[in-house]
Design a protein around this nucleic acid. Sequence first.
DNA 1: CTGAAAGCGCTAACAT
DNA 2: ATGTTAGCGCTTTCAG
Lengths: 341, 341
Amino acid sequence: MNEKTASIRPQGASRPTIYDVAKQAGVSKSLVSLVLRGSPNVSAERRAAVDAAIAELNYRPSRAAAALAGSRTGTIGVIIDDYRNLWFVDFLQGMQEVLAERGIRVAVADRSFNAHVDASPLEGFLAMRVDGIVVASEPSPEMGDGIGVPSVLAGNRLRQIPGADVVTSDDKRGGNLAADHLLGLGHRKIGHVTGGGGSARERAAGFVDALHEAGVESVVLGDAGTSEQDGFHFTKMLLQANPETTAVFAANDSMAMGAAAAIRDLGLRVPEDISLLGYDNSPLASSNLLRLTTVDALNLEVGRQAGLALLARFDGAEQVEATCLVEPWLVVRGSTARVAS
Amino acid sequence: MNEKTASIRPQGASRPTIYDVAKQAGVSKSLVSLVLRGSPNVSAERRAAVDAAIAELNYRPSRAAAALAGSRTGTIGVIIDDYRNLWFVDFLQGMQEVLAERGIRVAVADRSFNAHVDASPLEGFLAMRVDGIVVASEPSPEMGDGIGVPSVLAGNRLRQIPGADVVTSDDKRGGNLAADHLLGLGHRKIGHVTGGGGSARERAAGFVDALHEAGVESVVLGDAGTSEQDGFHFTKMLLQANPETTAVFAANDSMAMGAAAAIRDLGLRVPEDISLLGYDNSPLASSNLLRLTTVDALNLEVGRQAGLALLARFDGAEQVEATCLVEPWLVVRGSTARVAS
DNA sequence: CTGAAAGCGCTAACAT
DNA sequence: ATGTTAGCGCTTTCAG
């Protein structure tokens, strides 16, 4: 039997198990298990023999068996709101950077994920026996009594989760940055279009507070939504009701895109007539079409901190509901300019 | 002990098992298992007793144990390219619609997912013992010999996977639609900015073929990338080299957004000077800023068909590498207009 | 329709 | 440093 046929399992034969690997390598099953989990207490030659056998048999450890026998699954679940809200992409990458070093896997689910099979993404993850949960969306009612496993809540939210740490970008500070930037450019007639979430609320508060401190009043408009359509609608209303406005701050880049459309439709130009400021530093902001000045929430760093918070819990840290605030950053592009004198 | 305390597990106590449920309900373990999987051979009263016990104990079946003992995991894996390519969102929803009826769960991974833990997303899914795999990205070399489980390849790709069915939107037909629309509006000097993937290649072929058949030659520009930046860059080049151009077709909506920026930067207007056509019918296309005429690939339907193909394989269909083509649809918005006479 | 018994493939505590 | 022995919590025959 040559190498090729050895790696092809004939019809009906079941997958190779840790047993087969042990036999092939001439060692015991537990030695194979040790090699699999990278134990240092294995001689180099034995390890080599096991690795060779694994390759030869095309062996793949069964996650189910490992999960059942072991005390941990090595997997943490991340619950996001909507795949279309791309902030989670950087967040996830930051988390993985931190968790990868400990060999921890990440699983993602959005709110409606497998809705017809599991009662909720949380139920799904708990049935999976994840070692921890990151809630990167508004907490659902079922989380009201806490989650049974180490958990962190990511982002500014309207509710908290008992027992969960909170890691978030400092949205209020981001609002400050936006206000300071516009004030520094000489703007005094400023509007803000916002939405209904916890982040939007904080951003608005930081923005309005900073303006107020400078003795500048602002017009704030918005509803629950934070889409491009909402940005379009409310910016149009805002500019029609306040024609003297020289700058608009939107709660996120999508809303800023809508704002840009509203501004254009009213026959005005960015930034000559209206300075436009977004939030998130999404691909939209760096697009050639918008070249948007925006606040970068540094979601990569938020993800890292969320990962670290979870690891601290795994290591037995008992700090109760710690909060970690990541400093946002202003990215200046071409959509803001000194106010026309 | 009241109900409240009964549902709270004291420190150190392990999760309730099927055993505890059986005892609580006064039945055997296997009866509980039958109830769990919705067997019809269970009397209504016994079922009620079991359900009550499950609720009382806050019992959650262990997926790991079920997977290990059973013959299937009830989970299929979907491998996508990048979370930022939002076409997968509709695709996923279509799949879930179809798979939900059979109680099948879906797990998603992008190319770099858990890269430091698993060798590849495919490895990760196989270790998880998924029942099937949907590859919604360009196949990786490791798939060259086929995947050991039922699999379907979604989208137009440069390579195939032995043994996998193919389900895709008919991108060539979409290219035809785009060309016919522009020809119908009287355009004769037409440019196309494209990218390197299998879909882009098909779209370009369909577009160029249809124009050619009408006796119209087109200028096609592009490289590997399909981002907004690429659309910007190549549209700029195209229009500078061919100032007589009256219409531009972009391989996707992001590229079209870049094209819109290039057109604006050259002092031209959409659609008065240049008609602009995108592809995907993404949120970008329906934005107020672009109001883009675009081709809708009907990814929801593609997802449904992919789910059905997988189910057919599960049911033992032996059709070898069937191909399913979904008809795309043109969505007309404000970015295209009759050519100026 | 129901109960008893035998594993699924692994980990972990224990012996060597 | 390596082998032995119990299970992990469920599904699945097989008898009642």
